[in-house]
Design a binder for these strands. Structure first.
Length: 545
RNA sequence: GGCCCGUUAGUCAAGUGGCCAAGACGUCGCCCUCUCACGGCGAAGGCAGGGGUUCGACUCCCCUACGGGUCACCA
């Protein structure tokens, strides 16, 4: 078989040589140890929590080593491409603090190693593919879909491993005449890699996360160029990561199964292999079983879910960091206000097994993140959430910013800040009683209290309320009201003999709290009243409850 | 089914031959306290099972079980 002739027959229009291409991609000039990583999604416009997990790893690895992090768009499958796919990806990642140094941008490229859209690299792939043909490492296959299916069915019936290999690789040893004949018929073909692997051979491979793993050689002649001349993932991966100088390939562990094939490809092409980091997957519990989180079934798989639920992006980021590097949590406790960039990220601390997504944990982290913010920041974030999701509430917030910020300042700052907001979407409920048009009585005073006692307390308060009193004096007044009405003003005393009183100052406070806020629970009542202002306080105390 | 990966409490996990097996979330209790939240203290709860190797195994080896992934002209 004259392989040079075959190569010309198959791809007559490809005139470039591998060396021409190599010349366009000089070695990167980077400091010792710098890592070059990439995020390489299909432009489906959909980002998954798992994508972000990987993107963080890429980003941290590159940026903590003085390297480069770039975006490559894997749009070799037209079916997976949606109109604004690329910009959605870029915008979403940006929102989560993931920024690229290089690569595809919304309307083009930024960087010297492009093009960064695989759909624009056909000539490059074909050049290398043609070279493989010349070297006898690739051959055309004219099987139709139906023929391949027949092979698969046969293998299934005979309980054989499915795939295009051995006796099933029907075009592997076709003669030039057979090929020529098909070509004359204008039959379409794919280009397959001629595997020399043997499944009885095992080899060791070192993964940066998984450590030493055993792999079995691949004996399947996989497709490297589809009938339209566009490469499959595998081939594009080898060519691109070589040319673009990727040093570390971070990808989901589901790629482990095709690793043997990738090893063959790099070798056949004469490329040095990058290091691989196969990351564990984010799982979810389904009927007692763990499974890969799925974008079809699980709304929480989508990054947009967290955005619309009102999680601060910082909380999602921190949560993912705790999943990525287990010691992040301890670092955060020790450095509550440090920038996340200061954390020393390492693949050595990455989990080898998949972890369940834990909403409780996310909520807790979110509360902590928000508790560290200023009232002003909380206001801004809440407002921007409301503007997208609750226009009425947004208007209320905007109507009096100072008032809103005062409300959000309650218990904020200091050593032990309140932590009662986990989601922007919950702020409305948290602050609602401060606004007359949102105010609702959600709790009432328990039946076991005498109504006349309640109204006596309320009217006594109404008559004695001094808006300008200090907190201590204000509370002294409440104690006095308690005392005058048969309620014990001192909690310790009350606990010694509850039966001797109608109740305690806690109950008296509760009457006031229910009257003023409509609830049994609220932040510090004194501060609440200060913010509400005398008129509103007295109006609510006066109202029948 | 073949191949690959994994298995420390409900969850996330530290742990690299000798520890009463960290810590965090969640749960429960107590304290603080005008309620809630915060904070403090404490409790329950774990090395999948079985064989080895070793003076000694969560740590090393083997087997079993279970879980996950993957077997496309999709990535």
């Amino acid at each position: 078989m004259d392989n040079n002739l075959l190569a010309e027959l198959l791809y007559p229009n490809v005139k470039t040589l591998p060396a021409d291409i190599e010349a366009r991609y000089p070695k990167r000039e980077l400091p010792e140890g710098a890592k070059v990583t990439r995020f390489a999604p299909s432009p489906t416009g959909f980002l998954h929590i798992g994508n972000l997990y990987g993107a963080f790893t890429d980003e941290r690895l590159a940026h903590t080593s003085g390297g480069v992090f770039y975006l490559r768009i894997e749009d070799t499958d037209a079916k997976r491409t949606v109109p604004n796919g690329i910009s959605i990806i870029i915008e979403t990642l940006k929102k989560f603090g993931v920024n690229f140094d290089e690569g595809a941008v919304i309307d083009g490229d930024n960087g010297a190693y492009g093009p960064y859209r695989q759909s624009e690299r056909a000539e490059i792939y074909q050049t290398f593919a043609k070279q493989l043909i010349r070297e006898g490492k690739a051959y055309p296959c004219f099987c139709t879909e139906a023929e391949l299916e027949a092979i698969r069915n046969k293998q299934e019936a005979e309980k054989l491993t499915p795939g295009y290999y051995g006796e099933f690789a029907v075009w592997r040893d076709a003669s030039l005449e057979q090929i020529q004949e098909k070509l004359n018929e204008n039959a379409s073909f794919v280009l397959r890699f001629r595997s020399e692997g043997n499944i009885n051979n095992k080899l060791k491979f070192n993964d940066q996360i998984k450590g030493d793993i055993d792999v079995t050689e691949n004996d399947v002649d996989h497709v490297i160029l589809k009938s339209d001349g566009i490469p499959t993932y595998h081939f594009a991966h080898a060519v691109d990561d070589h040319l673009m100088g990727t040093t570390h390939v971070i990808r989901d562990e589901s790629w482990l199964s095709t690793l043997p094939f990738h090893i063959q490809l790099f070798k056949a092409l004469g490329f040095k292999m990058p290091k691989y980091c196969h990351t564990a997957q984010v799982l979810k519990l389904d009927n007692g079983n763990k499974r890969k989180i799925s974008k079809r079934k699980d709304p929480e798989a989508a990054l947009t879910y967290y955005h619309s639920q009102g999680y601060p992006v910082e909380a999602v980021r921190e949560y993912l960091m705790t999943l990525l590097n287990s010691n992040f949590e301890e670092w955060r406790i020790a450095n509550p206000n440090a920038d996340i960039e200061e954390f020393k990220f390492t693949t050595k601390k990455m989990s080898v097994s998949g972890s369940l997504f834990d909403l409780d944990k996310l909520n807790d982290i979110s509360k902590n993140v928000i508790s560290r913010m200023t009232a002003e920041e909380v206001y801004e974030y809440t407002l921007s959430w409301a503007e997208e999701n609750d226009a009425e509430f947004a208007d209320i917030l905007k109507s009096d910013k100072d008032y809103a910020v005062r409300i959000l300042s309650i218990g904020r700052g200091g050593k032990k800040p309140r932590k009662d907001i986990a989601l922007w979407s919950k702020v409305k409920n948290y602050v609602s009683f401060f606004y007359d048009n949102l105010f609702q009585r959600v709790d009432t005073i328990p039946e076991n209290f005498d109504k006349s006692d309640v109204s006596a307390v309320l009217s006594a308060f109404k008559e004695s309320y001094d808006e300008n009193a200090e907190q201590n004096d204000w509370f002294a007044n409440i104690k006095e009201i308690a005392n005058n009405n048969g309620f014990c003003p001192d909690m310790k005393l009350y606990k010694q003999d509850p039966a001797a009183f109608k109740g305690s100052v806690a109950d008296v406070s509760m009457f006031l709290r229910v009257a003023v806020t409509g609830r049994m629970n609220s932040p510090d009542l004194y501060e609440v009243m200060q913010i509400l202002g005398k008129d509103r306080v007295l109006a609510r105390v006066t109202k029948e409850i």
